[in-house]
């Protein structure tokens, strides 16, 4: 038996996972901020880059923006259904988000193919070096997001988002599951507590880490992946006008 206070759960403090994802986002701001800042400065120094930007298709870029914005909506709907404990809707929205991420990548690949077929490569000039670097780096983040979303979707399909109900082997909404069992330490008749030391109950059957994320349900990670996905969306919100609309 693992003793864990419910302080974090009940006090409104930030969980370690959420703090970690915000730190990750902070570091990502530095990565993209450095690249975007450099682009802005060089763009100001080179008004002639407008000719290069004119080769980019605004309708296609707009379509990609709409796809990514819609995927953010489906992602936040997946998170909303975590609170409602509606596994089917969670899976549906996660899959929709991942598919829209793939559509985004497909459209971006189409754009890349168009550029390559016209002899435009990253080494063509500095503008295109920035274009391929910024959009390529962003695409890598989209791929990472899709991977994380599909992993969560798989957990959802296998009914592993929440701890299994005792004896049933299926997820039971409301059940805290192992790892977050809270014992009343005032009850010294508990056999797992001897001499004031709380000892693990070796006889307890723990289903393993398949659903458990450090004592928290896998479903909690939908929020974390969602934060990352929305950040990827925010990056594109700035990349689109910078690259496409400054011609």
């Amino acid at each position: 038996m693992i003793v864990q206070t419910a302080a974090v759960e009940n006090s409104g403090e930030i969980s370690t996972g959420k703090l970690g994802i915000w730190w990750l986002i902070g570091s990502e701001i530095m990565i993209f901020g450095g690249a975007i800042g450099s682009f802005i400065l060089l763009r100001l120094a080179h008004p002639d880059w407008a000719d290069n930007a004119g080769h980019l298709s605004v309708p296609i870029g707009s379509l990609n923006t709409l796809v990514l914005l819609t995927s953010s909506y489906t992602m936040v709907k997946a998170f909303e259904n975590v609170k409602k404990r509606d596994r089917k809707k969670i899976c549906r929205f996660l899959l929709a988000t991942a598919l829209m991420g793939l559509v985004f990548l497909g459209i971006k690949s189409f754009e890349y193919h168009g550029k390559f077929s016209h002899g435009i490569y990253p080494n063509t000039n500095l503008f295109w070096a920035f274009y391929f670097t910024l959009t390529g780096l962003h695409a890598l983040h989209v791929i990472a997001g899709i991977t994380a979303i599909l992993i969560l979707w798989t957990f959802g399909l296998r009914d592993r988002l929440w701890p299994p109900a005792p004896g049933t082997g299926t997820a039971s909404p409301g059940s805290p599951g192992p790892g977050i069992d809270i014992i009343d330490i005032s009850n010294f008749s508990d056999p797992s507590i001897r001499g004031g030391i709380i000892r693990p109950n070796v006889n307890m059957s723990i289903p393993g880490p398949r659903w458990s994320g450090g004592g928290r349900p896998i479903a909690d990670r939908i929020e974390l992946v969602g934060l990352y996905w929305h950040f990827v969306d925010v990056v594109w919100i700035f990349l689109f006008p910078l690259l496409y609309l400054t011609a």
Binding site: G12, E13, I14, L19, W22, W23, I25, G26, S27, I29, M30, G33, G34, I36, G37, L69, S72, Y73, M75, V76, G226, L227, H230, F231, D233, V234, I237
Partner: peptide, 26 residues
Amino acid sequence: VAWNYMHLKHESRIIFVILLIPILLF
């Protein structure tokens, strides 16, 4: 997106500090 979908409006000050530092450096 940040305020509504990332729920920044519900987050604590530490999150804003984490975000503010790289934005200031940028």
